[in-house]
């Protein structure tokens, strides 16, 4: 199941961004995005490599609420 946790943009680089989700930071390519990206934006990332979509903060917060619940309730967490 391709669960996708939104990632918050921490820092912009040339064609990539440093993003963070649940404290883990990773660098993702922005080359597949059409929309401009700024620090603080939320992105959906595929395979921890490419940002594929920008989402609005409300949608990101709703997603985090769901993932908080998954992480809290699933035994393997």
């Amino acid at each position: 199941m391709c669960i996708a946790i939104p990632a918050r943009v921490v820092e912009l680089r040339e064609t990539s961004a440093l993003v963070e989700r649940y404290g883990e930071r990773l660098e993702v390519s922005l080359l597949l995005l059409d929309d401009p990206v700024a620090p603080g934006d939320y992105l959906i990332v595929q395979a921890q490599t490419f940002a594929v979509r920008k989402i609005d903060p409300d949608e990101a917060m709703e997603a985090y609420r769901l993932f908080d619940e998954i992480i809290e309730t699933i035994p393997s967490a």
């Binding site: 669960i3 959906i44 997603a63 769901l66 619940e69 998954i70 699933i74 967490a77």
Partner: peptide, 25 residues
């Protein structure tokens, strides 16, 4: 997490279906 969908338990049916594309982005 194959049991991630268990968080939909207790949701209204229409709410659960609306959540699916957000959960599995």
């Amino acid at each position: 997490p194959v049991s991630a969908c268990s968080i939909l338990v207790g949701c209204r049916l229409d709410e659960a279906l609306a959540l699916l594309p957000r959960l599995f982005g």
